[in-house]
């Protein structure tokens, strides 16, 4: 059974945000206006978080870190969900089942990476923008929580395709939209249980670390960076 994982090389990342838009277009995120942005209610499953260690405001050490859902092996969000709307699957993907979600938002609080977002409004697409909607991803109604799915609809399609071609799933058959788009080729996706996969190789790099490892969430998003930062938590 695969264990899907993403590696993000911060040494390669340029902070261009292609992953952010690729995700929004792929996953039917509605266009938000200035008013929703001002209220902090825009939806973005992938975002760039600024980590700025200014030493007394002199030399800024700014790093922009792409943050998708970590798809933790021990996700805190599923423990608090009262209706089992979020569950971890056999292949390690933390799924969100929108029709079950009652919008209590316990999970948004439980997630230490703050990647879960609540739909405050009914999604709207002004004519003719709804023509760009993808049939692979459901449109989320108002009042449910959503988050990065590692584009699991692409896994569904990939499995469908390879089963029709009567062959096993190979590396590269299933890649989320953000990874596919990344111009600096900073993101790699694959199966952490496959000893020959690129993610396994990179996860063993001395540059590898994970966010908030001390919480024991066992995130499956692995970051790479040159030594001096991120190593110590």
């Amino acid at each position: 059974m695969a264990r899907w994982s993403m590696v993000i090389d911060l040494d390669r990342c340029t902070g261009c945000q292609a992953c952010v838009v690729a995700c929004q277009v792929e996953n039917n995120v509605p266009p938000a206006g200035a008013d929703q942005a001002a209220a902090g209610r825009t939806i973005s499953w992938m975002r760039l978080a600024p980590f700025q260690n200014g030493e007394h405001g002199t030399r800024p050490d700014l790093k922009l870190v792409p943050i998708p859902c970590m798809h933790c092996d021990h996700p805190p969000c599923i423990k608090v969900c009262p209706v089992k709307a979020t569950q971890i699957g056999e292949e390690g993907l933390v799924a969100q089942v929108y029709p079950r979600c009652i919008g209590c938002r316990y999970c948004t609080t439980a997630c230490p990476y703050t990647v879960r977002q609540f739909n405050w409004r009914r999604p709207e697409w002004p004519q003719p923008m709804e023509r760009g909607l993808s049939p692979d991803v459901s449109v989320r109604p108002r009042g449910v929580v959503e988050k990065c799915s590692f584009c699991h609809h692409r896994l569904q399609r990939a499995k469908d395709k390879v089963s029709a071609e009567n062959r096993p799933l190979r590396e590269g058959d299933y890649v989320p939209a953000c990874v596919e788009s990344c111009p600096a080729e900073a993101m790699v996706f694959g199966d952490l249980d496959d000893p020959r996969s690129n993610v396994t190789r990179l996860s063993q790099s001395p540059r590898a670390f994970r966010l908030l490892e001390e919480l024991g969430t066992e995130p499956k998003v692995i970051y790479l960076s040159k030594g001096e930062w991120g190593g110590e938590v």
Binding site: C16, A18, V21, V25, C182, P183
Partner: peptide, 9 residues
Amino acid sequence: GRLCLKGQA
């Protein structure tokens, strides 16, 4: 095969 944010948008 890569595309930036403007192309995506």
